[in-house]
Design a protein around this nucleic acid. Structure first.
Lengths: 243, 243
DNA sequence: GCAAAAGTGTTCTTCGTACACCCATGG
DNA sequence: CCATGGGTGTACGAAGAACACTTTTGC
């Protein structure tokens, strides 16, 4: 909102909402990307998104795009504003201001049947971030910022549970941390940490039996908003030899 | 950047950059506010800001507004993007998307001689946040978000030094933490913490002599980008009896 | 000398790390 | 029975909390 002192006139900008939608599939951190059907960057992959409507709140627009692109209404998980990107020239057609949102969702069984004709897929973020031009526009930067935000936030919030189904085991949750951070964590210390932090996990009393081995207890995400003390991300070079 | 699938047309929005400019004056956390000269909210206080120009980068616009409002070119300190606010109706005239930036600056000797006719002042954030309508538009929320961001970031970054002059004592820095967090910190443990974290502070070798008492060493901000381990913010209820 | 602020040493406790060990199930 | 993963016990060390104590200035 302006002081309107030196400059009462104003310019108008196109505004879009773009999404970094992250999930963990088969122990790989993935993001949802769509194939562009029109120029510019026709045929390249891009983050899903779209123009904000004249009377639509930004968060509402983000939720609408999320539902449209994943084909799921009220997708479980998490959605938050990430940052805004507005460099002149980032869209060759016209000046566009993009408000990026970050979503974290459990693994979706269907690879997303897009509501529109454009193809979409889950792609490993490592592939998408390997080259600067793997994604259209400045979407590589937006995705990198989203991944970094996710990595940081699971340290001190229970947000890693957003990657899990409603009920999950401690091992499931540990696998999320290991995948998102790209490290190995000691299963025993991890177990103590998450079960010992009050309000982090709610025991359901039930257990899972998958393959061999002792059945694991099932938990739900608890009411705690922050983790204290935080989960510590090991330095990438740390090794761990178990037994 | 849109998929442009279901909706190729787009709307245009006015875009402004508004600033939460924080400083510590006489041991009080303050923000810069300007008096609005026109409707709406005429005569009320608001955060400084203004419209983004057609070919201006968002960060450039924020820096320009910062220089204009403080009357200082290349103000020392820190400037970062905070968040974007775009609820319909937040400006009664028209739809406006506001990209908010957070600035942290050392105490400025002059109370800011505005370049324009509007009055401006440093006001304690406690006053500005005491009531929901102390500030125009949704600027109370923007300021609250900025303060919360600042409180969080000085935990794990050397950003508290942005509130200090180029050279400062450990006690100066501690006073910043105490003011921003609203707590008391043990001077001895604080000293060990900041001087013991490599790269946080650079000794200048010189000392200050103010009133009575042993002269304090002068430091500059060091090259460290993050503090590890982080500075711990005490729980607000913790008391501390010294000696 | 005395007050006041700067800076150091020491103890206690909390918590992360590493790893030995036991538990419960499938084959 | 044994392999496999789930979960507990415990010892060590790093770092925060609390506070006694020494240092260096002004008055």
């Amino acid at each position: 909102m302006a002081t309107e002192s030196t400059q009462d006139y104003y310019s108008l900008f196109a505004v879009t909402v773009d999404l970094s939608i992250l999930t963990v599939r088969q122990d790989v951190l993935c993001a949802l990307v769509v194939e562009r059907g029109i120029e510019p960057y026709r045929g390249q992959w891009a983050l899903p998104g779209g123009f904000v409507r004249p009377d639509e709140d930004l968060a509402v627009a983000a939720r609408r795009e999320l539902n449209e692109e994943t084909g799921l209404a009220n997708l479980p998980g998490h959605l938050e504003q990430l940052a805004t990107y507005g460099a002149p020239g980032r869209d060759p057609r016209t000046r566009v201001i993009t408000v990026a949102y970050l979503a974290m969702a459990p693994d979706l069984p269907v690879p997303v049947a897009g509501t529109d004709a454009t193809a979409s897929r889950w792609a490993p973020v490592d592939e998408l971030l390997a080259s600067d031009d793997s994604l259209a526009f400045d979407h590589g930067r937006i995705l990198a910022d989203g991944v970094e935000r996710a990595r940081a936030k699971i340290e001190y919030t229970p947000l890693a549970t957003a990657f899990c189904p409603p009920e999950f085991t401690v091992a499931d949750l540990r696998q999320i941390y290991e995948t998102v951070w790209g490290v190995r964590l000691d299963p025993r210390n991890f177990h103590r940490k998450v079960t010992g932090t009050p309000g982090f996990l709610l025991p359901t009393g039930r257990t899972t039996k998958r393959d061999s081995g002792r059945p694991a207890e099932l938990f739900r995400c608890g009411p705690a908003g922050v983790l204290h003390p935080a989960m510590l991300r090991p330095t990438p070079g740390s090794t761990r030899n178990d037994n």
